[in-house]
């Protein structure tokens, strides 16, 4: 049985190849009928994280609307640099896409000395997928009840308090450093490998202050095991309508959101960019929207020009923060 079906499949694939050759299946024909084969969607992280989940959600929808399977290929390592570099080197034919994000396409350019790619010029940035803020929260026994109280306390006792983040050079670490710079505070950084262990230590009272993805702390805020002080978005978050932004507290420049987007190697033909932008925008504003909002994320779907401009702005913004905070990787 197994041999039989195997042989049959082989027969079909051989005849398909012959057919393709007979019809003169050229590259031009391929472009006209985009997509005519399976699409590889590089997710530059190992399976399991939020970015991976974003990638899979979008891949699932694109498979349906494009009529070709979009296969997620996880190529993790070096904060997203390995997967992004591999994608940058591939052909701009629309069959290799990459999940771009705040790490691989913005912060890393400021923290890594030797980047093998340029996050702006080596890519065609197609559209944004989703973005979400970080949140600053404290252990319930900690003295500060509001962001202003935290600022006052940190000014009174500089260097005495610690904050936990999901890692050196992570978006939460960078957001806190940006806030510290603008507010002139000295709070020491305790780095963790990921948001979960950082949260665990703040819940256990080992470290008083936490900055991490806003959605991750929701159950603990509800049960009173953590007290949320502020979110880092430009507007309040749907999950915490009563929690102010840092901007509201008087620091309008302190806006930091973790974002993901859809990108491809530089030089992607404009008709393919248009098609992918449209389908992705439809997906994130349609079937995927509810899932994103459950995580407190804002759906993207902006135009390719706007997204490219946004990415350049992010690169510049985080480069400045990394330099003045002295954060480097490598």
């Amino acid at each position: 049985m197994i041999l039989n079906s195997h042989n049959r499949r082989k027969f079909f694939s051989i005849s398909a190849t012959l057919l393709a050759a007979a019809c003169g299946f050229s590259e031009i024909a391929l472009a006209q009928a985009y997509p005519s084969k399976q699409i590889t969607f590089v997710v530059p992280f190992p399976p399991g994280g939020t970015s991976d989940a974003m990638g899979r959600l979008v891949a699932q929808e694109l498979s349906k609307t494009l009529g070709q399977s979009v296969i997620v290929e996880n190529r993790g390592g070096a904060n997203g640099n390995i997967g992004a570099a591999a994608a940058a080197r591939s052909k701009p034919d629309g069959y290799t896409l990459v999940l771009s994000g705040i790490g691989s396409h913005a912060i890393n350019a400021g923290t890594y000395k030797n980047m093998s790619f340029d996050p702006v010029t080596d890519f065609t940035h197609i559209t944004s997928i989703a973005s979400g803020p970080n949140a600053i929260a404290v252990h319930p026994d900690f003295l500060a009840r509001t962001l202003q109280e935290l600022i006052d306390l940190a000014r009174k006792e500089p260097g005495k308090h610690n904050y936990a983040s999901s890692g050196t050079g992570s978006s939460s670490n960078m957001a806190m450093e940006l806030f510290k710079q603008k507010a002139g505070l000295k709070i020491d950084h305790i780095s963790y490998r990921g948001g979960a262990p950082a949260m665990t230590d703040v819940l256990g009272g080992q470290v008083p202050i936490l900055i991490t993805n806003a959605d991750a702390i929701l159950p603990h805020v509800k049960s009173g095991k953590l007290r949320i002080l502020a979110v880092t978005g430009s507007e309040r978050n749907v999950l915490y309508p009563d929690t102010p932004t840092i901007a509201e507290a008087g620091y309008p420049d302190v806006v930091a959101v973790s974002w993901t987007g859809l990108s491809a190697p530089a030089g992607l033909p404009s008709d393919i960019v248009k098609r992918l932008q449209e389908e992705t925008a439809k997906a994130v504003k349609g079937p995927v929207r509810q899932r994103l909002e459950a995580l407190g994320l804002t759906p993207g779907g902006v135009s390719s020009q706007d997204f490219t401009k946004f990415v350049s702005g992010e690169v510049a913004k985080w480069k400045a923060v990394a330099q003045s905070a002295g954060i480097t990787a490598e």
Binding site: A78, G167, T168, S191, Y192, I327, T328, A329, E330
Partner: peptide, 9 residues
């Protein structure tokens, strides 16, 4: 690998 505190490789 990269050091968790400083990010140094």
């Amino acid at each position: 690998g990269s050091d968790v505190n400083s990010g140094t490789a």
